[in-house]
Design a protein around this nucleic acid. Structure first.
Lengths: 194, 194
DNA sequence: ACCAACCCTTAAACTACATTAAGACTATTT
DNA sequence: AAATAGTCTTAATGTAGTTTAAGGGTTGGT
């Protein structure tokens, strides 16, 4: 399966595209292969692309003064990743987007995305739904962060992202959960001995 | 100043509206006065309106199994409030929106908002920017929640919302910061004795 | 094949924050 | 005007999660 077939199947799950729209979309996508630890975005840069993950996995994270990383989201196959705040407002990002596995992606630039919005209105709707899903994810995550313990958040992570559990090192999962790797290790130990 | 003049001035700060657009907007807005502790949305309901706050203040919050409230956002004058996730997807909300002061609001229903999007394209852009701002706010808040202490978050709150500081009881601010009122009291005490 | 870099775990000491309880003070309702 | 519900603070005790340190295991680069 080619990368284009992959993303077209993805769009079909929202609203199917006709031939003209498929052509308009694929002609504006750039395929890239990125190695592990390579960046799509670094703090201070303006986010220029919306990225669709064909294969592999990325993390989007912020870093505090002392250099500690805080994972906000993971994005694996069939998912989108971008600092939407920076992309839309054209302001320097506070975030990094980095490959945690060797990955294949399709990227569309902000300008080309705007072209699609203007000339092929269906994309307005599809991308709006995609962004709304991201919004919902963030809101649920914030609420969960406040209202549940690290144990509960770990269980929730396991059931929400069962396939990521085995692919990501626990240090990365701990950062996503907002705890130290040492404490995650303790949680995992307690889970097994019960 | 009437409520309509108020919201039209608000839109002028984004992209000015022409007479036809002003008419299309104001004819679809419903003015309401709500008392303190009255709800705009309760858990389990589908969010039906986008609400503009003319005067007063609201909190949007979630509640855990034990009944504890977690404030996600406050919305005061010139701000918008809605559970965007529930509004767009027409799914039951996990959140409450409640007046913390007697307030005056203007509401637009989802159907009327869609009408404006379709027939007056400028609203697409204006509301998209409004929603993007909400998105940015959430993302910054999540990052800050992970990367800074309660002391730092309180200082940040004071500088970001100086006018809310005096209007909201500290119990509500504590809930927004993700701490207990007792601990906020301690923080405030330490701030003053230094 | 080696070295460096990363990763996982355990455990002891520590800290940011929660819980409980109690008293004083302030609004809101009747 | 009294009653009730909400608010703010202090203080003692408790706990979820951090820090530091150390040992062993895995991976990846040259």
């Amino acid at each position: 399966m080619t990368a284009f077939q992959n993303i077209l199947a993805h769009f079909d799950r929202y609203i199917p595209l006709d031939e003209t729209e498929k052509q308009a979309l694929t002609s504006r996508l750039t395929e890239r292969r990125v190695k592990r630890k390579q960046y799509l975005l670094q703090e201070g840069d303006v986010c220029k692309h919306f990225t669709y993950v064909v294969a592999g996995c990325f993390k989007m994270y912020g870093v505090d003064k002392s250099g500690t990383e805080y994972n906000l989201v993971f994005a694996a196959e069939d998912d989108w990743v971008a600092d939407i705040a920076s992309l839309h407002k054209e302001l320097p990002s506070k975030l990094f987007i980095e490959a945690v596995e060797a990955s294949t992606i399709l990227q569309i630039s902000k300008g080309d995305l705007w072209y699609l919005y203007t000339n092929h209105p269906k994309f307005n709707r599809t991308f709006r739904v995609i962004i709304e899903d991201k919004y919902t994810e963030l809101q649920n995550r914030l609420l969960q962060t406040y209202s549940s313990t690290a144990h509960e958040r770990y269980e929730q992570f396991l059931s929400q992202y069962p396939n990521l559990t085995n692919r990501l090192p626990n240090t990365q999962i701990a950062s996503y959960l907002g705890i130290t790797p040492e404490f995650l290790s303790k949680i995992r130990n307690e889970r097994l001995t019960k």
